[in-house]
Design a protein around this nucleic acid. Structure first.
Lengths: 207, 207
DNA sequence: GTCACCTTGTAGCAAGCGCCACCGCTACAA
DNA sequence: TTGTAGCGGTGGCGCTTGCTACAAGGTGAC
C-alpha cells in the first residue's frame, strides 16, 4: 500500500490524492522514530501512507499511556488541530511499524479545506473516530481492571500486526498501559496459567 | 447573556449569529434536564446561549464520570460529530445551571459550513479545546490520586458558578469522579482537617 | 567462552480505594 | 411534635496495584 489511492478513505477522489501528493513531502521512517512530542511545535500535518503510528500521552513524571494507533490511510488529528491553531502538540507520536508518512505543510490546510469538501469530510470522520477512541480509553482506565485492559491491548496489537505472535517486552506493555513492569509480568503469568496466552522472551501469543 | 452576539466566539460575525438564530429553535431548560444520553439519537446540534451543560461518560454498570462542562457561547462537539455522521451519542449531556439552548437541526450543518467559514473555524476551535480537555481527564484518572482530582473538580466548580460556596452533595461529587460516596466523604474530611475546605450539608467552600 | 546487559519470575509490603454496615443528624412535611 | 427521607461520619475489610529487591535465564559482542 504505497499509494493513497488504494485506501478506502481516498478511493473516491483521485484528484485530492494527487493534490496531497504534490504538496506534501514523503518520507520513509523506521519503527521507533519520533514524530511529535509533548510541547513540540507542529509544522506539518501527518498522513500515514504505509505502516502505523502510536500516539501516547505522558505525565510530568515520565509515565506514559497509549491512546490509539494511526493506521495507513489515516491522519493525526492532533497535528491538524495543533497546526490550525498554532498550538504545540500535547501528545507523543512515534512510528510503530516501519512507515511512509506524508508531511503536509500546515499552510496548505485552509485552501485544501475550501477546495476539497471531501477532505473536510475525511477530517471530520477522523475526529469522530479519535474522539470515540479517547472515550474508550477513558472508560478503560476509569472502570476496568488492569488484566482486562491488558487483554484488550494484546488483541489490538494482534489485529494491528496481523500475525498471531506479538513482539513486545513486558516493559513496553507496561508503558503503554501506564503501569509498572512487575504488574504486567504478574498478570501475564496469570493469563498463561489460565491458558489464555503463550509467553516467550520478547514475544507472546494469544490463545 | 441572552444573545449570542455578546459572546467572544461570535462577536466578529453578527451575520452568522442572525442566521443561527433564525434556523434554530431556542429553549429554556432547568438544571438537571437531560439533553443527550448514551445510545440516543442526535437530531440537533446544541449551542449554549446561557447557563452551562455537563457532559459525562457512563459505563455499563451505571457508574459515571464527568468529562467537561460546556459554557455559554460554546457548542457540544459530540452533537456535531454524531449529527454529521448519523451516529448515536456516546455521552450523557445534562443542564448544569439553568440554561437557554439553541437546537440547530443537523440538516443545516453542511451548508452553514460552506457559507460561513467562521462557523467552521468555531467548530475546529471547540474540537481543539474538547480534545485537550479529554486528554486532561485521561491524565487525571491515569496518573493522579483521588484527593488531587477532587480538589481540581472543586476548583472547576467554583470557577463555573463564580461564587465561593459550591452547592453539591458528596454523592454528586462521587458520581462526577466515578467513585463512591464514602471515598469522597473520607477525602473531604481530610481536606477539612488540613484547613483546605469548609464543609456544610449540601454545600462546601474552598479556603 | 565469557562478560555485560536485558528480560522475566517471584516474594513481600504498603498505599489507595471500593464497599459494607451502621449510626447520628438535618430538613421538611404532615 | 413526630415521622421520614436524605445526607454525612466512621470503622473495618479485602482487593488491586505500585514498588523494592533479588534471583535466574537469554542474548549478543568480543
Amino acid at each position: 500500500m504505497n499509494n493513497l489511492n488504494e485506501m478506502a478513505a481516498f478511493r473516491s477522489s483521485p484528484e485530492l490524492v494527487a493534490k496531497l501528493n504534490s504538496v506534501s513531502i514523503r518520507k520513509r521512517l523506521k519503527a521507533g522514530s519520533l514524530l511529535l512530542q509533548p510541547e513540540g511545535q507542529i509544522r506539518s500535518i501527518l498522513i500515514v501512507a504505509r505502516g502505523s503510528l502510536k500516539v501516547s500521552r505522558m505525565d510530568d513524571e515520565g509515565r506514559e499511556l497509549l491512546l490509539y494507533y494511526i493506521r495507513a490511510g489515516e491522519s493525526c488529528v492532533m497535528s491538524v488541530l495543533g497546526g490550525l491553531h498554532h498550538d504545540t502538540s500535547k501528545v507523543k507520536a512515534e512510528v510503530e511499524e516501519d512507515a511512509e508518512i506524508l508531511f503536509l505543510p500546515i499552510e496548505q490546510l485552509p485552501w485544501l479545506i475550501r477546495e476539497y469538501p471531501e477532505w473536510l469530510d475525511y477530517i471530520f470522520r477522523l475526529y469522530h473516530k479519535r474522539f470515540e477512541e479517547l472515550l474508550d480509553v477513558v472508560n478503560a482506565i476509569a472502570f476496568k481492571r488492569m488484566d482486562e485492559r491488558l487483554l484488550v491491548l494484546l488483541r489490538k496489537k494482534q489485529e494491528l500486526v496481523g500475525k498471531d505472535s506479538i513482539a513486545a517486552t513486558h516493559e513496553q506493555l507496561a508503558n503503554e498501559l501506564g503501569t509498572a513492569r512487575v504488574v504486567i509480568s504478574r498478570l501475564l503469568k496469570q493469563l498463561e496459567d489460565s491458558g489464555k496466552v503463550e509467553l516467550g522472551r520478547g514475544w507472546l501469543r494469544l490463545l
